[in-house]
Design a protein around this nucleic acid. Structure first.
Lengths: 245, 245
DNA sequence: TGATTACTGTGTACCTTAGACGCAGTTGTT
DNA sequence: AACAACTGCGTCTAAGGTACACAGTAATCA
């Protein structure tokens, strides 16, 4: 029927039966994914090619096709392996309220995206999600259990947070992360453009001037995160005050 | 110094001096951008190649390089042309408070992203923004003038909203938009996966069951939008109650 | 044991795409 | 008329994804 997606599902969700006969496979899916991730982490997603991954594994590129039907599937495997399952909360510690749980969850997710910034580009557009990725969603939704939100609303809240994580990752990646790194020029270019066309962008000019004093990325992250959580809290409180039928 | 980005800036921000001598150019940047946009709208970003764009314009692909230094720059032009300048508010009507302004702004931006869903994929990673794109940011930031937020905070709020627009676009695009369209299978696949691994995803199972009754995309969009605006309102009110030095 | 069968990695194609380079023609300037 | 600056174009290279047929290997079965 679809074919395209079916391959993805089988690859990401298994099962992966060991071949009964024939030579032992030299590789396996986790090793392939790891090789791709190492290249992407070090040199970016654009430098991940069948060739480069195969080289790093000591085989020819065609050998990879014995394990992975195509490049799209390889990238999907990389994403799933890089994200991995959502870490369980420390069993000794009390879990805390929904707000602490979601906040910690979002921070962990952001750390992941910052560590593997190529994941952002690899997860645009329609695609099949893997079990690890879904486990992250599961934890976020379950953190909102008992808040009076509907199932759809809990899901929407999780999606909202993921959107913020992605937005900050994008921005951090664009302005060159911490400081003084090779991509920091983009921030400078933007500043120059705004300044040299200042009459068209008065609000931005003022905002930029004010922004140089604050911490940039960190501030944007915290600001958005707290605004989202505040907004959720407002709704949850309202619901608690006047429950619906 | 950078070269890469300088080309982008010159292309997006001008000036574009008419050549004094030689044959009349057959093409111009807006026409090229439009051709690319038409292909991307109809067949997706992946089908935009120098070849295809040139064909549609009735020239060979090498002719394009007389106008655009490379494919990256062509895509940047497409993005800038597709987004365009932020429409000015109707001059007769009163502008309304910050909340109405931002809400309307976000809706217009979402409509744009939904109309040209490839823009999402074309704007991941570090890149130079064009004047039109910045005008959108300008309007959002200026809508928050006089709210007591700092410049950095106004910018962060705009980024937060953009993140939500992008998140919803991504989701809408993935679950196949309205319904019954070719990509709607992905939603079905996800549902199947959650159901067949239900014991691992109890919260998602419940949330999905509840979600089928609501409107899906629309609901997620409205939910996130209102939560963000609520969160902003909470902060603005707090600031108004106890202004900082 | 030997034949069969299902697998392995590999070399050799082919196609598409981005881009470099040089040529011939066109047009305003000198 | 000669020149300089430009145009669009044909040719070429390199890289990437992928189809396919081949030779070798290991478990199964006659």
């Amino acid at each position: 029927m679809d074919g395209e997606h079916a391959e993805m599902v089988r690859l990401l969700w298994g099962p992966h039966p060991r071949p009964a006969r024939g030579p032992r496979p030299t590789l396996d899916l986790p090793r392939i994914a790891r090789a791709g991730i190492e290249i992407a982490d070090a040199e970016g997603l654009a430098d991940v090619s069948m060739q480069r991954v195969a080289e790093r594994l000591g085989v020819t590129k065609m050998a990879l096709y014995r394990y992975v039907p195509g490049k799209a599937q390889l990238v999907a495997l990389m994403v799933e392996a890089a994200i991995g399952p959502c870490p369980a909360p420390a069993p000794g510690r009390p879990p805390g309220g929904w707000r602490e749980q979601l906040e910690s969850w979002a921070r962990q997710l952001l750390a992941l995206f910052l560590q593997h910034s190529w994941v952002l580009a690899a997860t645009v557009g329609p695609r099949v999600q893997g079990p690890g990725e879904l486990s992250w969603l599961e934890r976020a939704v379950s953190a909102l259990d008992g808040t009076g939100l509907t199932g759809a609303e809990r899901m929407d809240a999780a999606v909202l947070l993921v959107g913020h994580v992605r937005g900050i990752t994008q921005q951090a990646h664009a302005s060159g992360g911490p400081a003084g790194n090779p991509e920091a020029q983009l921030g400078a270019i933007l500043g120059d453009l705004i300044q040299s066309h200042g009459e068209s962008y008065p609000a931005l000019t003022a905002a930029f001037a004010s922004a140089v004093e604050s911490d940039g990325q960190d501030q944007a992250w915290e600001f958005g995160l707290q605004r989202i959580l505040d907004g959720l809290a407002a709704l949850i409180d309202r619901r608690a005050a006047s429950p619906r039928p």
